[in-house]
Design a protein around this nucleic acid. Structure first.
Length: 310
DNA sequence: ACTATTTCCTGGATGC
DNA sequence: TGCATCCAGGAAATAG
C-alpha cells in the first residue's frame, strides 16, 4: 500500500530510468476504473511527449511532459472541441502555456506545450519499466512505449489506482515534509474528528497513509482517537516532528514492504522492520511491554499503545 | 463547512 | 478439497 515514502522511492526509481525519454505509443486497457481522464485525452497528451521530469506530489507520481505544439495544430477541429469539455484534464491542453523551446529556431513558429501525466497507485498499483518482450503481467491496464525501446507499464489488480492527465497539476493539502509548525497546527484547529482521521485527510496533509499515521502518533504519544482540536500545542509540535521523522526514516529505508510492495527496481523496502505499532496487535509495546491495541477508526485499522499514548 | 459512512476492487487468509 | 465469507485501504461519493 504505497504511501508517501513508497511513492517517493518509486518516483525516484522511475525518474532515473525514463527522464528525457520520449513517449512513442500508448495502449490503454478496456477497464474503465483506472482511467480518471478519458482514454483519448490520456493517449493524446502522452504520445510524442518528452518526459522532462518525474516527481512525487502527495501520493501521486507526476510525469512532466513537454511536446512541440505542431501536433496540436494538426489535430482535427472536432477533436479539439471535444477535448475542451473538461478544463481539469487534458481538455485544458489548448490553454496550456506556449513558449519557445530553448534553442529553437526563432524563424520557425513553434510552441512547447506542457502537461502532466498523473499516476496514483491506489492500494496495489505498480509501475514497471521493462523490455517489450517481457511477459505481460495480469491486470496490466496501460503500456507506454518509449523511444529508448523500453516500455512503462501500469499494473493494478485491485484497480484502486488512477491515471489522469492535467495542465498545471497541483494536489490539495500541504507536503508533510515541507510544512512549517504554524501551518501544521492550523490544519487541526477546530477539528472534531479523531487526529488519526485528520492525518489521513489528503486535503490537509498529502501523502500520509495508515501506516505512517499510526507510527507518527505512537512516537508523539497521542492516541489515534483523540479529537484533533483537543490536542495541546506542545503535543502538536511533537507530532509535527514525528510525522517528518517517520516519513524521512522510511524514505531512507526504501519504504515499508508489506504484502507485495516493491520499488521500481523490484526491491523491497525495509521500514516495516521499524514499525513500532502498525501490524503489531497483541505484541508487546517496544517501550513499556504492554500489548499493542488495535481499534477501527473510519474503517481503518489503528494500532496504538494505551500506556504510551494518551 | 464538517464529519461519518458507504462504495469500489481482487487476492489471500480463514472458517466450516 | 471446495466454497463462502471476510479483510486489506485510498479516495470519491453519499448522507447527515
Amino acid at each position: 500500500m504505497p504511501e508517501l515514502p513508497e511513492v517517493e522511492t518509486i518516483a525516484r526509481g522511475i525518474a532515473k530510468r525514463v527522464t528525457g525519454d520520449v513517449i512513442e505509443s500508448v495502449w490503454l486497457g478496456k477497464k474503465k476504473e483506472p482511467l480518471k481522464s478519458p482514454a483519448a485525452e490520456i493517449a493524446a497528451a502522452l504520445e510524442h511527449s518528452r518526459i522532462a521530469a518525474v516527481r512525487r506530489v502527495g501520493k501521486h507520481i507526476v510525469f512532466d511532459l513537454e511536446k512541440n505544439g505542431v501536433a496540436r495544430a494538426l489535430l482535427p477541429a472536432r477533436e479539439r472541441t471535444k477535448s475542451n469539455r473538461s478544463r481539469k484534464s487534458a481538455g485544458a491542453w489548448e490553454s496550456s502555456s506556449s513558449v519557445a523551446p530553448p534553442g529553437a529556431d526563432s524563424s520557425i513558429p513553434s510552441t512547447l506545450s506542457r502537461a502532466q501525466w498523473i499516476v496514483h497507485l491506489g492500494m496495489t498499483g505498480r509501475l514497471q519499466v521493462c523490455e517489450p518482450q517481457a511477459g505481460l503481467a495480469k491486470h496490466t491496464h496501460a503500456i507506454v512505449g518509449l523511444a529508448s525501446g523500453r516500455e512503462l507499464r501500469f499494473v493494478d489488480p485491485r484497480r484502486f489506482g488512477r491515471l489522469s492527465v492535467a495542465v498545471g497539476f497541483d494536489a490539495a493539502g500541504v507536503e508533510p515534509l515541507e510544512v512549517d509548525l504554524e501551518t501544521f497546527v492550523e490544519l487541526f484547529r477546530g477539528r472534531k474528528t479523531p487526529i488519526k482521521s485528520a492525518l489521513l485527510n489528503q486535503k490537509l496533509l498529502r501523502g500520509v497513509g495508515n501506516i505512517y499515521a499510526d507510527e507518527s502518533l505512537f512516537r508523539a504519544g497521542i492516541r489515534p482517537r483523540r479529537q484533533a482540536a483537543s490536542i495541546s500545542g506542545e503535543k502538536l509540535a511533537k507530532l509535527h516532528i514525528t510525522v517528518k521523522e517517520v516519513l524521512q526514516e522510511a524514505i531512507a529505508l526504501g519504504g515499508s514492504s508489506i504484502s507485495d510492495y516493491v520499488d521500481a527496481d523490484g526491491e523491497e523496502g525495509f521500514f516495516q522492520l521499524q514499525h513500532r505499532v502498525y501490524g503489531r496487535e497483541g505484541e508487546k509495546c517496544l517501550v513499556c511491554k504492554k500489548p499493542v491495541k488495535r481499534i477501527v477508526i473510519a474503517g481503518r485499522s489503528s494500532h496504538y499503545c494505551a500506556k504510551c499514548q494518551k
